[in-house]
Design a protein around this nucleic acid. Sequence first.
DNA 1: CATGAATCGTAAACGGCGTATACTGTTTAC
DNA 2: GTAAACAGTATACGCCGTTTACGATTCATG
Lengths: 233, 233
Amino acid sequence: MPTTTRRERQRAATGEEIKDTARRQMAEHGAAALSLRAIAAAMGITAPAIYRYFPNRDALVTALIVDAYQALGAAVAAAEAAVPRDRFGDRFLAAAGAYRRWSLEHPAEFQLIFGTPIPGYEAPADVTVPVVLEAFSPFATIPEDAWRAGALHDAVFPQEPETDARLAAWLIGEGLHLPAPLMRLVLEGWGQMHGLVTLELIGQLPPVVGDVGPLYDAAVRALVARLGLRVAP
Amino acid sequence: MPTTTRRERQRAATGEEIKDTARRQMAEHGAAALSLRAIAAAMGITAPAIYRYFPNRDALVTALIVDAYQALGAAVAAAEAAVPRDRFGDRFLAAAGAYRRWSLEHPAEFQLIFGTPIPGYEAPADVTVPVVLEAFSPFATIPEDAWRAGALHDAVFPQEPETDARLAAWLIGEGLHLPAPLMRLVLEGWGQMHGLVTLELIGQLPPVVGDVGPLYDAAVRALVARLGLRVAP
DNA sequence: CATGAATCGTAAACGGCGTATACTGTTTAC
DNA sequence: GTAAACAGTATACGCCGTTTACGATTCATG
């Protein structure tokens, strides 16, 4: 006998339907056009009914953000998982490629989680930061795996004492085992991937380079080389 | 006798006052909270009066975006101009530092030009793209200066035929004289600077590394080295 | 099975938003 | 001096998020 009653299942389904409808509206009219009244109308209910499921619009947005992060993280993890475990460089390339692909395929959700497109909405950091780190964990765990396997190329990691000390403390707190300078390179790489995707999405890069894909891939390959990860010949 | 009448001067002044008031509101309540009624109230007029100066809210936003790009470009250019012309690496470092500093000091304007924080507003690419390129031109012209001066370190530029061909065509169209692989590295670097600043502004990096400044500087120095630009010893 | 409670939804309203229209003074130019 | 151009207001429309008061349904329990 299931612990969930009929009513609870119904309630959860309606909550999901609200989020699905919201996602559909965002995909069509952009994240900024998210409107409780429009969602309700598309569902055939009235706007105040949504308040039975979310205390206010910001709570709905936060739920959508968490979902989006998890979808992004799942896409990255799935792409990485499809590569043989000992091909660390290729795993990183697959993860980075999935990151860009998901972002291009879900531009509204991307700007929802990485921008501030909602008037008056401020993402609660205590909710988002852990989910973000979870989504981006492959970019740290792949180099960690390679490090522990002793499979790192003979790369030399430049030292940055100030930042690296801070980073080392954070790594310990997170239970990650990899050198701080390596993690710093990962963060610099995250910034690069994020920036290139952002510039592509707002249309600044395409007029200059056309298809951004090769530019992005070149940057990631250079990053993989700096990290000392080997790729298939 | 000036070619501008009294009325024209008055009109231009009011237009500037509207934009200044808008900037003050953005700085206080965020770019998304921009409201014609609030601007008008702060100026002691009514909202429809603004329509004498801007055909609609989007036109005002576009004007603010253009102004912001020019302010960002001016900050970058000024920082770069303060460095001796033949210290190409230091000029690049100064420009990159000014880019981050301006962004941190003007977060609302940064998200105004690089995000989509306004409900229903879509930045007109034909207006913004040229202004963006103008603002970022130092990051291309500094390597170009170094290249023409034969002052590039013995760096080896990895080739990416597909993208580089496209880039070379664009460079010719823009009248820029530097190798396509070099320009590609500049764009990858732009993505990195942009991404790191963005992640810092939305609060993802600080909990990991604390002060993002050293991380940013390390990334830019590595980029400068890859570009083959020399820095002061 | 009857009944009281919990739940889900609606209707109406409030204040605020961008914006269109019609109107009134003031300033300018001939 | 007068007619046109201009700057501003008042009003109104249809959106928005949100609150309140109120029905209808569904559930759990005597």
